[in-house]
């Protein structure tokens, strides 16, 4: 019994040692007469622009007269093309409601979904945002996998996205 507990303890502590990926997505305050929260997709693409991991998709969940918010998901053009149209929504652990203005943290651990299947290589973090009666913006941050050293990477949006940061900790 004691051995068993020790085993569980080991299992539960081991992820702390694992490499992790921290992402911050800033949704900027936009002075607009009619403001709607943006649809946002966050994913990792490989060298062929294929989706290696879906990290987050935020879209309107409420059913409206025009149907659920999925009607406008295709406006996340690159995400829809690379991944969305192949998915059945909602995507467990990935899709969720739109987010308000501010900084939004995402944290993922190596060896666990959605990073578990990431093979060694060069990748890009992609963040795409589109806003009803607003614009569309897509940012990319290149990085290598697996994580060999602590790195702080970022990109700055001009319109629909603010600061995007990618923190890699081995």
């Amino acid at each position: 019994m004691r051995v068993c507990w020790l085993f569980i303890l080991l299992l539960s502590t081991s992820p702390v040692m694992a490499a992790d990926m921290g992402i911050t997505v800033q949704i900027p305050r936009i002075d607009a007469a009619e403001y709607h929260r943006p649809y946002v997709a966050v994913w990792i693409e490989d060298g062929n622009q294929a989706v290696a991991a879906n990290l987050a998709v935020w879209y309107q969940q409420k059913d409206t007269k025009e149907g659920a918010g999925s009607k406008w998901l295709a406006d996340l053009r690159q995400w829809w093309r690379r991944s969305g149209r192949e998915q059945s929504l909602p995507i467990d652990g990935v899709s969720g409601a739109t987010r308000p203005v501010g900084q939004h943290q995402l944290r993922f651990e190596s060896g666990k979904p959605p990073l578990a299947s990431l093979k060694p290589g060069s990748y890009q973090l992609v963040v795409e945002a589109v806003r009803e009666v607003g614009g569309r913006e897509l940012l990319k941050i290149p990085f290598d996998w697996p994580i060999s050293e602590t790195r702080h990477l970022d990109a700055k949006g001009q319109h629909e996205l603010g600061q995007i940061t990618l923190d890699l900790n081995p």
């Binding site: 025009e66 149907g67 659920a68 999925s70 009607k71 295709a74 829809w80 093309r81 969305g84 149209r85």
Partner: peptide, 10 residues
């Protein structure tokens, strides 16, 4: 009107 659609009942 559109060529690429994502709605549930397009």
């Amino acid at each position: 009107s559109e060529t690429v659609l994502s709605a549930e009942d397009p």
